[in-house]
Amino acid sequence: VCSSDLIPPEIGNLSSLNVLNLQGNNLSGSIPAEIQQCQTLFELRLSDNCLTGHIPVELGKLTELQVILDLSHNNLSGEIPQSLGNLMKLERLDLSSNHLQGQIPPSLGKLSSLDSLNLSYNLLQGQLPSSFSSFPRSAFLGNKKLCGAPLARCLGSSRRSGKWLSTAEVDAIIFAIVFTTAVVCLVMIYMMLRIWSTWRKVAVSNNEGIGNEIKEQDQEKWLGY
């Protein structure tokens, strides 16, 4: 059950804080932007609460974060901010089980120190950064519109940069396939009928020729008698 307790903006006054662990406290409200003032944080755990709103872009200023940034199992929404790509020392990132939307920012693909990643069970879409292919499929499950290695290949990825085809485009492709198949079938039927007709004429002509030869032979026999 979610409580009415919030993370106070005064958290930013703890400028010498190294570890902040508030997980599993049923906290409500949003993540205060003032947390950016905790410049010495190297571990931030806010998972298993009832936090709402967007992930503040100010988290990208916590460049000393290294051990983990864990915001999983909350009610966070909106897009993943590009600024998280500034956390170059970060080794573990867990944003799973929220309501995050949109595409994964390319900046996350440049986190060279990242060993563990979990973005599962959100509403993310589009193509995964190529550098994410080394992570397990479980890191991205529950995002029905995500594609690219290690998930399924994106439709038209070479032309559309991982964007999904619209319903109208899918309908047009299906119509084109059905129409082309129908035309090919009609052409094949027409060709088969032409071949059969030609073969029938040849067969009839041959039969008539054989019949005439038999008649001539019979006439010659009678004349011989």
Rank of each mutant, 00 (worst) to 15 (best):
K163D: 08
N18Y: 11
I35Q: 04
S157Q: 06
L151K: 06
S112F: 00
R137W: 03
W199A: 07
P136C: 07
E220P: 04
K89H: 13
A168N: 11
L186D: 10
Q82R: 12
E10D: 12
S205R: 07
I195K: 11
I11L: 10
L141V: 15
D5N: 04
G109L: 04
L27D: 08
L95S: 05
H54M: 08
P136D: 13
S116P: 00
S113F: 13
T181Y: 05
L108Q: 14
P150D: 09
I210W: 13
G109H: 09
I189F: 12
K89V: 05
A176G: 14
V202K: 11
V183P: 06
L87Q: 08
K89A: 09
L108P: 02
S3M: 00
S120M: 03
E58L: 10
G224W: 15
I31V: 03
V183N: 15
G148E: 06
L71W: 05
S166M: 01
V187E: 09
Q39C: 05
N206L: 07
Q39K: 15
E10W: 05
F179N: 05
R153A: 15
F175M: 14
R194M: 12
S130L: 08
M192Q: 10
Y121T: 06
D115W: 09
D115G: 13
N75V: 11
E91G: 02
L111H: 07
N206A: 15
R153V: 12
R200Q: 08
G102Y: 01
V184R: 03
R92L: 01
D5T: 09
L65S: 02
S15D: 06
N26A: 13
S130I: 03
C147G: 08
S96Q: 01
G148V: 08
I189W: 14
L17S: 04
L124A: 03
Q82H: 14
E91W: 06
S131G: 14
